[in-house]
Write a protein that binds this DNA or RNA. Structure first.
Lengths: 193, 193
DNA sequence: CGCGGGTTTGATGATGCTCAAGCCCGGTGG
DNA sequence: CCACCGGGCTTGAGCATCATCAAACCCGCG
């Protein structure tokens, strides 16, 4: 089960892991199963664990005063899960994170983060992923301030077609910042072309 | 002039700098002045330099097919400037970055990034800033998919009142993803309360 | 068969955009 | 000193986009 993680670290960092390092990772990454709809994190809790998704699908979202969910992130295999802000600052999270499919993750406590960074491959990977993450977030901001609902949907089809396979439309709609009705109409239009 | 940078690094990392490290930073951070409207980066260029803003105000934005500007980031004193994606991947940027006020920055080539990270205080600062940056970007995404124009403006007043002092309204509007007319009306409403 | 989650459809209305015009105000040059 | 100019801000009318609410539909499953 940890194989997916080791492979991922090597791929991203282009650095191999010593047997000692592998042993360390085996110790601090503990396998965990999440059923569909099971919470990984709830609003108000401090996020003391990160996780690497081996198999499954998860979502990160807030719930507003009217009970409506707003999806800020969708995650699939080989993604890292956790509320970055809460983990970094140690503050209570304003998000929920739960499994949308039955999911297997490797969980690691935030207190082990420094230890992890002592492994060259992991440190390198962390820097690379962080940069990539920032780039992706900035693009999403750019899209959200400059594109229409339809344009954002078209872009999602190109950049994350997997999402459309794995999540129902009302979740995709929320991720795009529109209602499920609007998304339905956009799709209807699209097929008539 | 480098004092602001040293102070910033120490504050953020809570680690002091040796005289040798200070010397290194003096070597690789070169002062540069930018006049108002002068470009730091243009669309299509690879961003080979980062910068630390000592004094001034800058903006990062794209220009769409109709010539409209979309502000993705506003930056003031003690902020880092540069297109993260272009710097990290070495790809041509899709953004413009320019000075909105006459600005003084300390410029550092991306090729020196590894060298910089060999300084403990800088490495630590990098991790902290990166986390903070991700948290801020995620919040902005959350706001943009879940709040109305007026709510976003109210939030900006609380989180970045400085922006309203330093940038004209049409730039603030673009940053919020609305038109200057809409922002004007929102402000008009607000005063009648 | 009936239930529940997800999707669609329609009617209506709010929100925010576009285009066009006018205003305000701090320069600059005659 | 005044006229004019330009950038920024405001105001208005009309329109496009998108949200809301309500109802119906679809389909896999117990």
């Amino acid at each position: 089960m940890h194989e997916a993680l080791f492979k991922y670290i090597k791929n991203q960092s282009a650095i191999s892991l010593s047997t000692k390092e592998v042993g360390m990772l085996l110790d601090i990454f503990v396998p965990k199963k999440l059923r569909k709809r099971q919470f990984f994190l709830q609003e108000g809790e401090v996020c003391n664990y990160g996780g690497f998704i081996v198999k499954g699908a998860m979502r990160q979202y807030s719930v507003d005063a009217k009970g409506a969910e707003h999806i800020v992130q969708l995650m699939l295999e080989n993604w890292w899960v956790g509320d970055q802000e809460s983990m970094a600052m140690g503050t209570p999270s304003s998000y929920f994170i739960d499994a949308w499919e039955d999911t297997e993750i490797l969980q690691v406590a935030t207190k082990h983060f420094d230890l992890m960074r002592s492994i060259p491959a992991v440190a390198k990977m962390g820097l690379i992923l962080s940069d990539r993450n920032v780039a992706a977030l900035q693009k999403r901001i750019h899209d959200s301030i400059s594109l229409s609902a339809e344009q954002r949907y078209d872009k999602l089809i190109k950049t994350h077609p997997e999402f459309l396979q794995r999540f129902p439309q009302h979740i995709i709609a929320s991720y795009l910042g529109i209602t499920k009705e609007t998304l339905s109409r956009i799709r209807h239009e699209a097929t008539n072309k």
